[in-house]
Design a protein around this nucleic acid. Sequence first.
RNA 1: GGCCCCGUAGCUCAGGGGAUAGAGCGGCCGCCUCCUAAGCGGCAGGUCGAUGGUUCGAAUCCAUCCGGGGUCACCA
Length: 580
Amino acid sequence: MNLFADIRELVVAELEALMAEGVLPKGLDLAAVAVEPPRDKGHGDMATNAAMVLAKPAGMAPRAIADALAARLMEDPRIAGADVAGPGFLNLRLEPAAWQGLVRAVLEQGTGYGRSSMGGDRKVNVEFVSANPTGPMHVAHARGAVVGDALAALLDFAGYAVTREYYINDGGGQVDVLARSAYERYREAHGLSPEIAEGLYPGDYLIPVGQALKDKYGDSLLNRPESDWLADVRVFATDMMMAMIRDDLAALGVTMDVYSSEKALYGTGQIETAIERLRGLGLIYEGVLEPPKGKAPEDWEPREQTLFRSTDFGDDVDRPVKKSDGSWTYFAPDIAYHYNKVQRGFDELINIFGADHSGYVKRLKAVVSALSENKVSLDIKLIQLVKLLKGGQIVKMSKRAGTFVTLRDLIDEVGPDVVRFVMLTRKNDVALDFDFDKVTEQSKDNPVFYVQYANARVNSILRKARDAGLDVGDATLSAAHLAHLGHEAELEVIRKLGEWPRLVEIAAKGHEPHRVAFYLYELASDFHGLWNKGNDDDSLRFIQGDTAISAAKIALARAVGVVICAGLGILGVTPVEEMR
RNA sequence: GGCCCCGUAGCUCAGGGGAUAGAGCGGCCGCCUCCUAAGCGGCAGGUCGAUGGUUCGAAUCCAUCCGGGGUCACCA
């Protein structure tokens, strides 16, 4: 049930009727007609802009359209009032029964309330994290992981067929570096002193890898030239890193559907096929790039390379797909990978990248657009930095020294629920402060706590009611006589519940999971407000002397709890039933 | 220099064609015999970075500029 959508349908139907009757000219485009919550509560329950958007194409005064529409809308039993206001808004007031019925719908549909068929089962691929398999995940990965996972859940809720995918960058030079670093730890495991040369990974996390190598290979790799062990160690170390990353993701509550390997693309002809296809479109050529503008590197020299014509798509320069030695650049397998995603039949691709990849966006969009003949859309969400604060100080991380704050550190300190919720309290393209002191604080300063507290209060009501001998099963609550929910404070909470399906669609359309977190905060706020009004006005308390009245009020509380649980479910946060 | 992101209340941020621009924190004033006061209510606080443009209507869209951040040859 989506009350806003229902009323919009009504408005559209009445407009069509007016066209059929000749009151309005025929053939008006009604796509821009919206039914929304008004900004100011005093304006009623819902507002439509129909008269304003149709005034010009219809060649009529907004007021005339609004009056005609209002008269027809008033005949619907759900509509209690329709007033023209301002520049031509039509403000609608709904009968309380319409709102009250919403509570029943929520209880009947449970956490499925708000689910949308908007996606129409279109196949969406959300690629996220894709951290290099060379070490543990750190804070920046955590934000990408949470945003990607919540976005995937949101799209699923909005009716898309979603695949969560991780692209393993296991094909480049960085895995050789990993192998060499691990080899030194292997030597260390044999009692030799490791030589962690400049450029190798110094982190302690490779010590167990060295030990594991010893367990598997004994001393057979010692004192051998690199060519004898590099390939084996690379696979071994990469596998261990990926196992660790999967564990980290699991600790955060993230489960991928598909892991794709860059390395696996080599030698299959997929890269060549994708490049040739682009060449067939005239987008690949051999050429020499000009030196970079601005500060040119001192050792820059011109060289002939195979280039992708990304300037056709608004990029600054064309981009190399082959190095001057003839091997592929990172870009080439990425082209093949995205071609692969297109071929798997996805209708939409979404990539979650760190903001430092912003320069990569145009060429990748160009590739997907070219290889899919514009049929597949690619949206790239760039995740801005996370700044860690502790005691008012910035927690620095230095990858070079091998001492960085890992995802695991974060989870160990504040728990996965706090990490997830806090990471979703900002738009992806705004930098985020993660303040250890604040996120663990138990006050309304801390949105995680605030929302959880609202749900805990709902459960508290249910417990108390049960203790008082009331039946608070969903069946009983659904059957409650909801006309008892007539107070303005109660209707206000119900209206907020009514916005949930609409919010889901807006958030899904914009690929903006943070909207869910903000909505939950607002819902929690409305609920806390209602709760406290019970301090002044006994009739607003949830548990009443009269069983029938109690049932109605508890039904409302329960409905709030249901929607909070649904929202937290999308965010991947576990609802708590009791604060301790 | 090019490209990307940001600029909204003292602070941290929502809103991203529609009415008198919102929330939290901080400040001030109130509310616990009663379902958790870990909370709630109220007051004060704004030329939505600037200037032009599009529109019936702009914080929102476009252009230019000013601040802040990020990024910029075969790395991945």
